[in-house]
Nucleic acid binder design. Structure first.
Length: 395
DNA sequence: CATCCACAGGAAGGACGGGGGT
DNA sequence: ACCCCCGTCCTTCCTGTGGATG
């Protein structure tokens, strides 16, 4: 089969889809031209950014809101629309600090965006800041830097990068930099250095979670764009919204759920999405997530996880460490310290594979109560196929 | 009511592999 | 060629702690 045949075939499949008219409208990175229930936030951001029109530096903005409350979509929406209207007044860069998760990467991203080629690693941070300043000197317009999910970056490192970025303007004369910081941790601002706090928190905007009715409305709009007629009725949309509303009103999850439900119905060759498809989609999304996080774990984290699987009860840190140690001994592998295992347990908790709760048992000490947060057979299956040494535990 | 358990979790730093600048 | 930097995973040493028990 030739290349163009393959392309034709894929296109043909899409044209023939009984379910989707245009699947892209349900993908997470699609920015709609309507953002319902966010008028107030849009207005606030625009009124701050309007300073750009006069060629002045807008105040730094700090945006809070849980995941899937439209923070990123609204910010991108406002900036790109503004860009269309006053293209010669400013430029902006969006950086997700979950992807670019070190100060080095963030600065490197800005430099690359400015057209400066920087090595993946090797330079000192000080050198990067020097280059950044040099490059910014040559920029004529104001620059808006959006830092999405900065709480993660600042917690992992410190707020030095924010401090430097907020201070950089004093070294620049032509163009000025303004920051938009996005976070889903409300308490985040408290851990900032007071100087950064006062500078970054010039304007604060809050994004409350969507409730079930609002989610329903949002899903309806997107469903109309994405699906063919009569593919789904309102009960499907309500179900997706209800499931997502239970999860702190996360619109992204709701959209994912709807899209995957559609994909499942399509794979089955059905013409309509049913409630069962939605339930199946839930399971599939969760499985993908678990697979993704477990298979990329370092070896000892996998081994710690495997240790926890060996019991159906809740375990303490000490018990986990004992099981882990004996597994490692059997396999002839050096153990890491209990201190490290304690951190590994926290990491596994963070990514939602375990539940680890600190408890006080009085006389019997302070420890963590650890249990599996996901389906055990699934974890075993993933561990087996991702590491042959660990697979030998169950053989 | 003080004690003391079984850890929690912070701080500092090191080994190592991937990558520089000059 | 030489020395330097970075991120990741890990160690060592440490101080802190809620509440059942004696």
């Amino acid at each position: 089969m030739s290349m163009s045949d393959i392309i034709d075939e894929v296109l043909e499949n899409i044209r023939n889809s009984a379910i989707f008219k245009n699947r892209e409208y349900l993908l997470p990175d699609y920015i709609p031209d309507q953002l319902p229930f966010r008028e107030r936030q849009i207005k606030e951001i625009v009124s701050v950014m309007a300073q750009l029109y006069k060629g002045e530096r807008p105040g730094n903005i700090f945006i809070y809101g849980l995941t899937g409350t439209g923070k990123t979509a609204v910010t991108k929406f406002v900036l790109s629309n503004l860009q269309k209207r006053i293209p010669d007044k400013f430029s902006f860069i969006y950086i997700n600090t979950r992807q670019s998760d070190t100060p080095y990467r963030v600065i490197a991203d800005i430099l690359e965006w400015l057209g400066d080629k920087v090595p993946f690693t090797g330079l000192s941070l000080a050198e990067l800041y020097r280059r950044l300043l040099k490059s910014l000197m040559l920029v004529k317009n104001n620059v808006v830097v959006v830092l999405d999910e900065i709480d993660a970056l600042v917690k992992k490192y410190n707020d030095d990068i924010l401090y430097r970025l907020t201070r950089i303007n004093s070294e620049l004369n032509k163009s000025k930099v303004s920051l938009i910081g996005i976070t889903n941790d409300i308490q985040f601002i408290d851990i900032l250095d007071p100087r950064v706090k006062s500078s970054l928190g010039e304007i604060e905007i809050v994004f409350p979670p969507y409730n079930a009715e609002e989610l329903t409305e949002i899903l309806k709009m997107r469903a109309n764009l994405a699906f063919r007629e009569n593919v789904l009725d309102d009960s499907i949309i309500s179900l997706c919204s209800a499931l997502a509303a239970r999860d702190h009103g996360d619109a992204r999850r709701a959209l994912d759920l709807l899209r995957v439900s559609g994909e499942i119905a399509e794979r089955k060759g059905k013409a309509k999405i049913t409630q069962d498809d939605v339930q199946e989609a839930r399971g599939e999304i969760e499985k993908d997530r678990v697979h993704e996080v477990i298979s990329t774990l370092p070896f000892h984290s996998k081994l710690v996880l495997a240790s926890i699987l060996s019991s159906n009860d809740r375990l303490t840190t000490g018990e986990v460490y004992n099981i882990y140690s004996s597994l490692a001994r059997k396999m002839g592998i050096e153990v890491v310290t209990q201190r490290r295992v304690s951190d590994i347990i926290n990491e596994l908790d963070m990514i939602g594979i375990l539940n680890a709760k600190v408890i006080n048992r009085g006389r019997y000490g302070k420890t963590k109560e650890i249990s599996l947060a996901v389906e055990k057979p699934l974890v075993i299956k993933i561990l087996k196929e991702s590491d042959s040494k660990i697979a030998s535990i169950w053989s």
